[in-house]
Amino acid sequence: MIALLTRDLQLAFRAGGGFGLGLAFFLLAAVLVPLGVGPEGATLAKIAPGILWVGALLACLLSLDRIFALDFEDGSLDLLATSPIPLEGVVAVKALAHWLVTGLPLTLVAPVLGVLLNLPGPGYPWLVASLAAGTPALSVIGAFGAALTVGIKRGGLLLSLLVLPLYVPTLIFGAEVVRRGAMGVDVAVPILLLSGITAGALALLPFAAAAAIRVNLR
C-alpha cells in the first residue's frame, strides 16, 4: 500500500499536471472574484468564506478524473485488481494520494488567499481547520465519482455532474465553519458535522467505489 502511495505521488510530481494546476486554479478564483465583485473590503470579507470553499472544491474537482482513468487506460487497474491488495485499499490509498497533492496544498495556501479576500482575522484558523477536516471528504467522494465513470470515454463532465451534488453537505458545513469563525461565533456544531461527514465518507465510500470499479472492469 505504501508502494502504491509513493508511486502515485511520484507520478503526480513527475508528470506535473494535477499538483500545480489545482493550486493555480484556486489562486485564479481568488483573484478573479474581487475583480468581478469590486474592491470593497466589507463585501469581500462577507463572501470570502464561501468563495474560498467553492474555489477549493472546484480546484479539487479538476484532477479527479485522473485518479483511476490513467491506470485504467494503461492496464494497471486490471493488475491492481488482481494483486494482493484489496481494491478497497487501492481506492483509499489513491484518494489519500489525491488529497496529498490537492487538498493538503489547498489547505496550506488558503490563508494567503484569505488575505487577498480580506477574510476577518478570527476566521483564519477556522479556514485552515475546516479545509483540513473537509478536503479529505472531497477527495474520497471524488474517488467514488471517478470509479463510477472510469470506463467512460471523456467522462470528465459527467464526473462533475455526479460529484457536485454529493459535495453539497461538505461545502455547506465547511463554509459555515469559516463564516462563524470569522464572525467570532461558536463553530463547534458545524465543524463536528463536517468531520462526521468526512469520517463517514472515508469509512464507507471506498467500498462503494471498489464495487463500481469491479463492475467497470468486468
Partner: peptide, 28 residues
C-alpha cells in the same frame, strides 16, 4: 448491465447524500 449496476450504486450513495444535504440545507 454495467449501467444498471453503476446507477444502482450511485442511487444508494446518492440517497445517503440527499438526506445529508436536506439536513445541511436546513442548518444553513
Amino acid at each position: 448491465d454495467t449501467a444498471a449496476d453503476l446507477t444502482g450504486v450511485l442511487c444508494i450513495v446518492g440517497s445517503v447524500f440527499a438526506v445529508l444535504s436536506r439536513y445541511a440545507v436546513n442548518f444553513w
